[in-house]
Simulated scan of single mutants.
Amino acid sequence: MSNRAKYAVGALVVFVVLLALPLPAWLKVLTVIGIPVAGYLALDPGQRRRLRGITRKQIGR
Rank of each mutant, 00 (worst) to 15 (best):
M1E: 06
N3P: 00
N3R: 12
R4Q: 11
R4P: 00
A5V: 01
Y7C: 05
A8Q: 10
G10K: 00
A11Y: 02
L12V: 06
F15M: 05
V16N: 03
V16P: 00
V16A: 13
V17T: 08
V17S: 04
L18E: 03
P22A: 15
L23R: 07
P24S: 15
A25I: 13
W26P: 05
K28W: 02
L30P: 00
T31K: 03
T31W: 08
T31Q: 02
V32Q: 08
I33C: 13
I33S: 11
G34W: 00
P36H: 14
P36V: 11
P36T: 14
V37P: 02
Y40Q: 02
Y40A: 11
L41F: 12
L41K: 13
L41S: 09
A42D: 05
A42T: 07
L43Q: 11
D44R: 11
G46H: 13
Q47A: 15
R48F: 04
R48G: 08
R48A: 09
R50K: 12
R50L: 10
L51Q: 12
L51Y: 12
L51N: 09
R52P: 00
R52H: 10
R52T: 06
G53W: 05
G53K: 11
I54G: 04
T55F: 06
T55C: 03
T55W: 09
R56S: 13
Q58L: 07
R61G: 13
R61S: 11
R61W: 01
R61H: 10
